[in-house]
Amino acid sequence: MNFRLRTALYATLLIFTGAAAMLAWREGFYANTALALLVAVWISAILSAMATRQTAPVTVVMQTPDEAALREQKRLIAYLNLSPAPLVTLDREMRLWAVNRAARRLFAADDLIPSPPDGLVAAISATAPGQTTSVRMDGGHAAALAIADLDSGGTGGRIAALIDIDAELKVAEANALRDLLQVLSHEIMNALTPIASLGRTAAALMMDVKPDIAAARDAVETIARRADGLQKFSRAYRDLARLPPPDISPIELRIFVSDLQRMFDTRWTNGPNLTVKYDRAPQLVLADPDQLNAAVWALLQNAVEAGGSGVHVTLEIQRLANALTLSVIDDGPGLSDAHRDRVFQPFYTTRPEGSGIGLTLARQIARAHGGDLQLVHTQPAHGARFELTFPAVR
């Protein structure tokens, strides 16, 4: 829209606005009158600004091509020097050049890098454009490389950005070691607590005037099985620094359930109750006995800790189609939606004394067996239901 047409349009609007203001004043609509006058003042200001711009002289600063190129070059250099990542270029003669201030500081070179670190030139040359790789600098320093060609044909050399990852790698290694130690300490303490209780129970039975030899023998045999399982479990973690692959073997379900019931009753002598239902389960289960015991025990302990001393816990084992399902149900307070979404996150816990490892480890064990662990039901004041499922036929 040209200047004359816009001026005519705004002038017309100004006339109509003035007429509207007079009409509103005559009819007694004073608020409408004020509004119309404000619009008229606004339009007048626009017309005044348009007239000023139309009559103001225009100054054009002409630059020579060399001056424009120099200005653009200085701007680009300033941008490059702001980058904290060292930038280098590799030319067709396989010479390495420092591009920005960070690169010049890193390689102690003003322009050409006379003695680049071993492997850096080869890594830049061998990495495809748009890809990243890592390289060890002098002294074992680790860096990630992001590579791009300086032209579309790849004949004009390459530019690479060096990103320091040494500090990040050290942090990741420290976190992994910390997590491993927490898993180990958590599982060892979980296993040792009922074993210690069973040991005291067996000792007390033997101190009776008429000792119950059968009960003491059962307690000692359970201690021996669980101690042996804990030893193998800890040794596997020590050797592999990860959850070992499950050693699948037939498990006699009656003995497996009996051990869990005895450990539960010994661990919590007053308060929580455990009911076991396995009449719809096979007599033999194919799984790693030590890992499965650790997973189910973690679920039982989680149910008691979440529900408190008055909670009732049910362990239900059944075969559905070709899957074996172990369900742990409690009648405790349940979980809110916020906690439900995060319950399997490693080291997430709502209890000050909790470690947040048990459920994560139980899910890892289930998935290592080709199954999964899910929270299938929880409602406030109506408890929770966890289901561990894995194939029944292998």
Results as ranks from 00 to 15, higher is better:
residue 314 T to N: 04
residue 302 N to P: 09
residue 341 D to H: 05
residue 339 H to R: 02
residue 359 L to V: 12
residue 373 L to V: 12
residue 308 G to R: 04
residue 304 V to H: 04
residue 373 L to S: 04
residue 319 R to L: 05
residue 360 T to R: 04
residue 329 I to V: 13
residue 315 L to W: 07
residue 315 L to N: 11
residue 381 A to H: 15
residue 373 L to G: 02
residue 384 A to F: 01
residue 356 G to T: 10
residue 363 R to A: 15
residue 342 R to I: 07
residue 372 D to S: 13
residue 296 V to C: 11
residue 351 R to I: 03
residue 341 D to E: 13
residue 303 A to V: 03
residue 357 I to D: 03
residue 316 E to N: 12
residue 348 Y to E: 13
residue 347 F to I: 01
residue 343 V to S: 00
residue 358 G to S: 14
residue 294 A to P: 03
residue 325 T to W: 03
residue 334 G to D: 05
residue 308 G to V: 10
residue 310 G to W: 02
residue 297 W to R: 13
residue 353 E to L: 11
residue 298 A to M: 06
residue 352 P to F: 04
residue 309 S to F: 09
residue 335 L to G: 10
residue 351 R to C: 01
residue 331 D to K: 02
residue 323 A to W: 07
residue 358 G to R: 04
residue 348 Y to R: 11
residue 382 H to N: 15
residue 364 Q to C: 11
residue 296 V to T: 14
residue 357 I to G: 05
residue 371 G to R: 08
residue 359 L to G: 08
residue 378 T to I: 00
residue 322 N to A: 08
residue 328 V to P: 00
residue 295 A to F: 03
residue 346 P to T: 00
residue 307 G to M: 04
residue 308 G to M: 10
residue 337 D to E: 09
residue 293 N to L: 06
residue 358 G to V: 01
residue 305 E to K: 14
residue 380 P to W: 00
residue 304 V to S: 07
residue 369 H to S: 09
residue 383 G to A: 06
residue 345 Q to G: 02
residue 318 Q to E: 14
residue 306 A to L: 11
residue 328 V to T: 12
residue 326 L to T: 08
residue 354 G to D: 00
residue 368 A to R: 11
residue 328 V to N: 01
residue 361 L to I: 15
residue 318 Q to Y: 10
residue 292 L to W: 05
residue 328 V to H: 00
